[in-house]
Amino acid sequence: MDRVDKIRGPISVLNRSDVDTDQIIPKQFLKRVERTGFGEFLFYDWAKEPGWDLDPNEILVTGRNFGCGSSREHAPWALQDYGFKALVAPSFADIFYSNCTKIGMLPVPLPEEEVHALMAVAEAEIDLEDEVVRFAGREVPFEIDPDLRHRLLNGLDDIGITLQSGEALERYEAERERAGPVTTSL
């Protein structure tokens, strides 16, 4: 995973709330078995609406509850493949937020009025190290889990980190694992 640090440049705006992952990447594109190439299908149906305009900048600013619905990671893949490196919104759906962080795309929650202020400017800088968004001569702080921030700043692989807890895992399986269904002998 690439490191995330400062993301700076012009912003794209999609001023809609409750944007679900079915809109971000419709189902007919989920049949691919690869992880790449989803960008051209981003917002496939909405992109046909008259007046639709979404430049592939590095920062997307959008409405609350972004990424709700289906857990498809194809949605973050499509956004990233299109060119976005960070998403700013008043809130994100849980699974979507988590999915973004797994691929090194930074979701940035800001208060609703700050998101609206950001939508009105042309450029911004998102600084993960300092946990702030800079625009129009101001600095607005955002929150992120410290472990997650560390992982993103260093581009660390989740599985690699977990396998460092290999001993704890083996101990758990030896001493505490629950009896449960054995799927291989059904």
Partner: peptide
């Protein structure tokens, strides 16, 4: 929980999932 594909990979490899406590 519902999870994404990177997490599917994580569970396949480790039988665990990283979660912030809801």
């Amino acid at each position: 929980f519902g999870i994404g594909t990177s997490e599917v990979e994580h569970v396949l490899a480790t039988q665990t999932l990283r979660q912030t406590r809801p």
